[in-house]
Simulated assay, not measured.
Amino acid sequence: MKKFLIYATALFAAVSFGACSDNGHENETDLSQLYGTWQQTRTYGYELEDGQKSDQWDEVVDEESLFTFNEGGTATARGEGWSIDIRYTQSGNRLQMTCTTDDDETFDCTWTIEELTETRMKATQYTKETYEGSVCEEFDTMLFERVK
């Protein structure tokens, strides 16, 4: 589960920011502030297994956990001993992501950007997976600071 949490956290980095127009239709938002490299500084959230809370965390991230976002819907996430290639599509302030780990494992998740400035990003990731007959849902909020 710890390995999955690291991978899921890395995916969270691929985030966008959106807004709604006055008529209620979602508009694609300029993602230029997203492009660049971000260091994850904190993660907090919880996990449900078959609807019951099975884990909770609130941690300062003190190891290298870098996310680089590029134009065109690609990103990478890397840290000590792991890396993830990310492909994403944007709808409003949400990203649908498909992630491939350095072990060729693939998983999907949804990211919601809650805050995006030139120096700070806050995003929440939702992941749902069935594992050994149990349904696991994870809600993870991550904070990032721009590196470059």
Rank of each mutant, 00 (worst) to 15 (best):
M1E: 01
M1V: 05
K2A: 09
K3M: 11
K3S: 09
I6R: 02
A8R: 07
A8H: 03
A8F: 10
L11P: 00
F12L: 14
A13E: 04
A13S: 09
A14Q: 00
A14H: 00
S16Q: 05
S16Y: 06
C20W: 13
C20R: 02
D22S: 13
N23V: 04
N23M: 08
G24H: 03
H25P: 10
H25M: 15
E26D: 09
E26F: 15
E28L: 15
E28V: 07
T29E: 10
D30M: 09
D30L: 15
L31C: 06
L31G: 07
S32W: 12
Q33A: 14
Q33P: 07
L34D: 08
L34H: 02
L34A: 09
T37Y: 15
W38L: 12
Q39A: 08
Q39H: 04
Q40C: 08
T43F: 14
Y44E: 07
E47P: 05
E47H: 05
E47N: 06
E49R: 05
D50A: 03
D50H: 07
Q52W: 12
Q52Y: 13
K53D: 01
D55P: 09
D55R: 11
Q56N: 14
Q56L: 10
Q56E: 15
W57G: 04
E59W: 14
E59M: 08
E59V: 10
E59Y: 14
V61C: 12
E63S: 09
E63F: 12
L66E: 04
T68A: 14
T68S: 12
T68W: 13
F69C: 11
F69Y: 12
N70S: 09
N70Y: 11
N70E: 10
G72W: 11
A77F: 10
A77C: 12
G79D: 02
E80Y: 12
G81I: 08
W82E: 01
S83A: 13
I84R: 00
I84W: 02
I86T: 00
R87P: 03
Y88L: 13
Q90S: 06
S91L: 09
S91M: 11
S91F: 06
G92Q: 01
G92S: 02
Q96S: 05
Q96T: 05
Q96Y: 12
C99G: 03
T100H: 05
T100Q: 10
D102P: 01
D102M: 04
D103C: 01
D104E: 07
D104N: 03
D104C: 01
E105K: 00
F107Y: 09
D108H: 03
D108M: 13
C109T: 05
C109D: 04
T110H: 07
T112S: 14
I113N: 15
E114V: 06
E115Q: 12
T117E: 10
T117N: 06
E118W: 08
E118V: 03
T119H: 05
T119L: 11
K122M: 04
K122L: 15
K122P: 06
K122I: 11
A123V: 14
T124A: 07
Q125H: 02
Y126P: 00
Y126A: 05
Y126G: 03
T127Q: 01
K128T: 07
K128D: 15
E129P: 03
E129A: 08
G133C: 02
V135D: 03
C136W: 15
F139C: 09
F139H: 13
F139R: 02
D140Y: 05
T141F: 13
M142W: 06
L143F: 15
L143D: 05
F144S: 07
F144W: 11
E145N: 02
V147C: 13
K148G: 10
K148C: 07
